[in-house]
Simulated scan of single mutants.
Amino acid sequence: MLLEAMDGKLKGHKHYSSRQLKPADKELRHKIDFRITHYAGDVVYCIMNFLDKNRDTLFQDFKRLLYHSSDSNLKKMWPEGAQSISEITKRPVTAGTAFKNSMMALVQNLQSKEPHYVRCVKPNELKSPIAFDEERVRHQVSYLGLVENVRVRRAGFAYRQRYDRFIKRYKMISHYTWPNFRKGTDKDGTKVIMDEMKFSGDVKYGITKIFVRSPKTLFALEQRRNDLIPSIITLIQKTWRGYLARQNYKRMKAAYYIMQAYRRYKLRAYIAALRQKFANAKKMSDYGKSIKWPAPPVPLRKTVSTLRTIFRRWHAYMVLRKIPREEWPQMKLKVTKKTQNVLSIFFSTTTIIVT
């Protein structure tokens, strides 16, 4: 019924044919095949199970189940499963509708980009890497318009590019545009580059693009750019290494300041501890002689030795100030005599031990 409806609807269309419309065409099976003439050639379709193939029998519940799978690959394969029940219809869309929606999304995406066309030519129908069907290739080249495209390119301008992209790629060629051109628009910068390279006679300047006629001009620009790339890389490396060295110096300087600050903190803490220990030494009966000195930091060892000497003199003064000054000479003699006795006892004991 579908083929009959298509025959009735497309009977006069020049790109459609079937066995019913052309009984002499033996390549098409009766009531089974129909042919569509595409721009690249004829394609024969089979009507058997045509509607079944168009139906998407995978219901939304199953898609939602696959989307919520713990396997990330399955989840990416079924993004339509993210729709909630209220957003979907009871019957899933057909394959044709899905294809149409996909093509519309593709066209919308392509319109937002700058297309670069790649012409693919199929060398044979056998999918063989060594076979070359000349007639098949000629047919594709003809329908793809490659010959006309090449002729237009050779007769006109071989290269065209927007000014911003052109100056971004070739700005290192001129010292007026490197590293940034600030004396005008991108078009002015492009003119500066081409004038310096003496290629002004081989180009045309459009509103938004530059047009280069000869490929030799483009090759010369690329060669000049390739010659300058190593020096630019060296400059970038030098700048980066200098930055790393400065950062390392800053870290070392900061560490040195931290060490100095910590050392000063330890010294102040030690002095504060001494002041706290000897704060009431004057009120003690022995004037602080029994106070144990804390272990000094290494930088303060000489200073602490001086402080100990000062403390001993102060302690002696505090003891002697209770004695009248006229008795000090007699006290000094007693101390000297007592010291001599102690020394004589010490040396005699040492001699006996050695003997």
Rank of each mutant, 00 (worst) to 15 (best):
A5E: 13
M6A: 09
D7M: 03
G8E: 09
G12S: 14
Y16P: 03
I32Y: 07
I36Q: 09
Y39M: 12
M48L: 08
L51S: 05
F62R: 15
L65C: 01
L65E: 10
L66Y: 13
H68K: 15
S69E: 10
S69N: 14
S70A: 07
D71N: 15
S72V: 05
N73F: 10
K76W: 01
M77Y: 05
Q83Y: 14
I85H: 10
E87K: 15
I88F: 06
K90I: 07
A98D: 12
F99Y: 11
K100C: 06
M103F: 12
V107W: 01
V107P: 00
Q108P: 00
N109S: 07
P115A: 02
H116K: 09
R119I: 10
K122L: 11
N124T: 02
F132G: 00
E134A: 10
E135C: 04
V141F: 02
G145S: 05
E148F: 03
R151V: 00
V152L: 11
A155K: 09
R160P: 02
R160D: 04
Q161K: 05
R162T: 04
Y163V: 01
F166Q: 03
Y170C: 00
I173Y: 03
S174K: 04
H175E: 15
Y176I: 05
T177D: 01
R182S: 08
G184L: 04
T185A: 01
K191M: 08
S200P: 11
S200T: 14
V203T: 05
G206M: 02
I207N: 03
I207D: 03
I207Y: 02
I207A: 01
T208W: 06
R213E: 06
R213K: 15
S214Y: 01
A220S: 11
E222N: 10
R225I: 00
R225S: 11
L228Q: 06
I229Y: 06
P230C: 10
P230E: 10
W240V: 05
G242Y: 11
M252T: 03
Y256A: 08
R263S: 13
R263H: 06
K266W: 05
L267F: 05
L267A: 08
R268D: 13
R268L: 12
I271S: 04
A272H: 14
F278D: 05
K282V: 09
T303C: 06
T306M: 11
R308E: 11
I310L: 14
F311I: 01
F311E: 03
R313D: 06
W314N: 04
W314C: 03
A316L: 13
Y317G: 02
L320M: 08
R321C: 04
E326D: 14
E326Q: 15
Q330N: 14
K332F: 14
V335Q: 12
T336W: 14
Q340F: 08
V342P: 00
I345P: 00
